[in-house]
Design a protein around this nucleic acid. Structure first.
Lengths: 244, 244
DNA sequence: GTCCGATTTAAACGGTCGTTTGAATCATAC
DNA sequence: GTATGATTCAAACGACCGTTTAAATCGGAC
C-alpha cells in the first residue's frame, strides 16, 4: 500500500497534483460514476496505474479531491465566524454578516483560486445532489461542524424566528447557491439566459446572490401551516422509508 | 423496430409502465450513469431485453422517464399562467401569482402524484445539475417555452427591476427549489436537520418555500456592481427600494 | 385447429470499467 | 560502482456494462 514517503521525487508531488487537478475537472464534467480512471489519468498525462498507486481507489481519489479544497474552505468559514463573533463581543451578529461569512467566503475563496476554484465550486454543487452513500459520509464529516456553528449563529441573530424555519431557509440558501453555480451552463442552454458573459459570472454573482439570500432569509414568515407549531413529535405512528 | 401497436396486450402497458416506474426510482437513486439496465429491469421484474425492446436504448428510456411527467407538468404550468393572465385582463400579474404558478404547480402536481411524484421531483432536481449533453437537449426542448413565458410575465410584473436581475433571481429560485427537493436526504445526514418528519415534508415545504422565494425575488437590488457593462436596462447606478 | 405479429426469454457479444501484477525505471545513499 | 526504496509502466484480470440475437411464448384472427 502506497505510503507517502519523505524522500519523494520532485516529480512525485507533480504527479499527485496533476491527477487531482484532472480528477477535479473530469468529476465535475462527468459526475462520479461517469468519470473513469482512464480518462482522469489520461488527461493528467500519467499512467493509469499511477492513480491507484497514489490514491488507492477511485473512491479515495474522489474523497481526496473533495477534501483538498473543502477543508480549507470550511476552516476559513470557521475562522471568519470566529472573528466576527469576537468583534461582536457577545452581541448577536447581523444576519447579513453570517450569510456573507458562509456564502461570501465560498465564492471569494473560489474566485481566489482561479479557474480551478470555479471548477471545484461546480463540483460541490453537483455532488450535493448525489445521494451516494460514501459521498454523504464525506460531506457529513466535513460540513457538520461548520453547519452547526452557523446554525447556532443564525439562531441567535434571529431569536424571533422559529428555529425550524431558520433551518429550512438555510437549506434554501444552500440550494440557491449550489445551483446557481453548478447549473449555470445547463440553464444557459435552456433559454437565452441573457446574463453577462461567462467569465465575469462569479464577480457579478456575489452581490446578486447576497441580495437574494438575505431577502429570502428575512422574508415574512409563511402563514400558519397545517402543523400548529414546532412540536417535536409530529410523526405519530408514521413510518419513514429507508433505502436498502 | 418496436413500434407501439394497436393490438397491445393488457400486459403490454403494464410492462412498459413497470419499467418506467422502476427506471424513475433507479435513475433518481443512482443517477443516469450509475443506473444500469439490469437493475432497472430487475426491479421491474421483467427481462433485461424488455427494456431495449420497448424503449430502444438506455438514453431513450431516460428521456421517456423525464418526458412522461415533465410534459404534463409544463402543460399545466402554461395552463395556469394562461388562466391568470386571462383573468387579469391585460394588467400585469403579481409576482406572487407567477411564482406560485411555476413553483407551486410543481409541488402540488408532485404531491398529487403520490410517492412517485416525489421521486420524480427529486429526479428533476438531480438531473438539472448533470450537464450531460443529451440531457441538456431534453431539458432545453421541454423547458424553453415555459421559461420564456414566465420570464416575460415576470418582466411585466416587475417593470422597475432590470431584466438581467430578474433572470438571475429566477435562476436562484429554481436552485432553491430543486435543491430543497433533491438534497433533503443528503443534508439530513450532514446535520440533525431538525425539520419535521420525512413524509409531510412536501406539505410543509410549499408555504415555506413560497415565502423564501418571494422574499428573495423582491429583495432590494444589490449595490452597483463593478462592471455595469452589459446592462442596457435602466437604473444601473443606484439600488432601489423594493415595494412591499 | 393454423397462422402471425407482438412480446418475452436466455444467452451471448464486444467493450469499458476499476483494479492488480510484476517488471522496468529513477533518485538517492552507501 | 552497487543496493534500496519509491515511482512508473505495459499488460492483464475478472466483473459489469449496453446492446443484440434468435428461439420460445403468447394472444387473437381466420
Amino acid at each position: 500500500m502506497g505510503a507517502t514517503s519523505q524522500t519523494a521525487t520532485a516529480d512525485n508531488r507533480d504527479t499527485r497534483e496533476r491527477i487531482l487537478d484532472a480528477a477535479e475537472a473530469v468529476f465535475m464534467a462527468c459526475g462520479y460514476d461517469g468519470a473513469s480512471m482512464r480518462q482522469i489519468t489520461g488527461d493528467a498525462g500519467v499512467n493509469l496505474a499511477a492513480g491507484h498507486y497514489h490514491f488507492g481507489s477511485k473512491e479515495d481519489l474522489f474523497k481526496t479531491v473533495l477534501y483538498r479544497r473543502l477543508r480549507l474552505l470550511n476552516q476559513e468559514r470557521l475562522r471568519v465566524l470566529d472573528e466576527l463573533e469576537s468583534k461582536a463581543d457577545g452581541a448577536p451578529l447581523k444576519p447579513s454578516q453570517i450569510v456573507d461569512a458562509f456564502f461570501g467566503t465560498l465564492l471569494r475563496t473560489a474566485i481566489a483560486h482561479g479557474p480551478r476554484g470555479r471548477t471545484f465550486l461546480r463540483l460541490i454543487g453537483r455532488t450535493l445532489t448525489e445521494p451516494s452513500e460514501f459521498i454523504a459520509t464525506v460531506l457529513s464529516k466535513e460540513f457538520a461542524p461548520v453547519l452547526e456553528r452557523y446554525k447556532a449563529a443564525l439562531f441567535r441573530a434571529l431569536p424571533e424566528v422559529p428555529r425550524e424555519e431558520i433551518v429550512w431557509r438555510f437549506h434554501f440558501m444552500l440550494g440557491a447557491t449550489s445551483y446557481a453555480i453548478a447549473g449555470v451552463d445547463t440553464l444557459r442552454l435552456v433559454t437565452d439566459w441573457q446574463t453577462g458573459a461567462v467569465d465575469d459570472d462569479l464577480d457579478q454573482l456575489l452581490p446578486r446572490l447576497m441580495s437574494f439570500l438575505l431577502g429570502g432569509l428575512r422574508a415574512p414568515l409563511p402563514a400558519a401551516t397545517a402543523a400548529p407549531s414546532t412540536s417535536p413529535t409530529r410523526g405519530n405512528g408514521r413510518n419513514r422509508r429507508k433505502k436498502p
